[in-house]
């Protein structure tokens, strides 16, 4: 069963590696959209330091949201998703494999870019490790919750805007605790509790979200 999970993950990773432009566009969006903020709100360091963590987290939400469409849509169109649904392996595990691959090619990239963005937003040196740690704990949850939305939207005639309406309300808890964790450390209040809550949300999402996603996928072929 674990082999099936890894096989699905490896396949998706291979596809992602062979289409680097499509994969990297999320991280590029992340950096590009961020660079609009100093231009928009003014580049004074104290303003940037104040809003930095929040802006980076909101953009992480958007970057993951934009990448959700490629999670199932391609497989849905070429028919390989139907084979996954029909396979004797538990669909929940295969979904987990797809989520793993999706996170490695979207969330992890954001994590890797985030120290650079912290510097651009004039965040103090502590942010260089707090921000990636918070993102490591938070972005997998975004992928897992987003997978539900992506699976539900398969075959619909609406686009990304409807997906945002489905998924963003469910992302809000991650945003709240992610930002308060980073800000807590930067203001010297400590954000350990918030990091633990982020971890707890990841555990809950890891345990429950694949079932909802699998149910939604079966629905698409019912």
């Amino acid at each position: 069963m674990i082999r099936a999970l890894l096989a699905v993950a490896l396949r998706d990773l291979r596809i992602a590696v062979r289409r680097p432009a499509e994969t990297l566009v999320g991280a590029v969006f992340f950096a590009l959209a961020l660079s609009l903020f100093p231009l928009g709100v003014g580049a004074s360091p104290d303003v940037l330091t104040r809003i930095g963590a929040g802006v980076i987290w909101v953009l992480a939400l958007f970057a993951v949201l934009l990448s959700l469409e490629r999670m199932f849509q391609g497989d849905f169109e070429d028919g390989s998703l139907e084979l996954l649904v029909l396979s004797p392996e538990p669909l929940e595990l295969l979904v987990l494999g797809k989520c793993l691959a999706h996170w490695l090619t979207s969330g992890l990239l954001l994590v890797l870019v985030s120290p650079l963005l912290a510097v651009l937003m004039a965040l103090p040196a502590e942010a260089l490790w707090v921000l990636p740690v918070a993102l490591v704990l938070g972005t997998p949850t975004l992928t897992l919750i987003g997978a539900i939305g992506a699976a539900l939207m398969l075959g619909s005639r609406r686009g990304t805007a409807t997906m945002a309406l489905l998924v963003l309300p469910l992302y809000i808890p991650v945003l709240v605790f992610g930002v308060s964790a980073v800000d807590g450390y930067l203001l010297g209040l400590g954000g350990g509790t918030q990091l633990l809550v982020l971890g707890a949300m990841l555990m809950v999402a890891l345990a429950l979200a694949p079932f909802a996603t699998a149910a939604a996928l079966r629905l698409a072929f019912a």
Partner: peptide, 30 residues
């Protein structure tokens, strides 16, 4: 927003049954 998402997903499909089931899953998650 959950209400709006539920309504939007329900009406996003040509087949009303498909939309109904998808929206039901979303309602449970919400």
């Amino acid at each position: 927003f959950l209400y709006l998402g539920y309504i939007a997903l329900h009406d996003a499909f040509d087949d009303p049954q498909r939309g109904g089931r998808a929206a039901a899953i979303l309602a449970l998650v919400g």
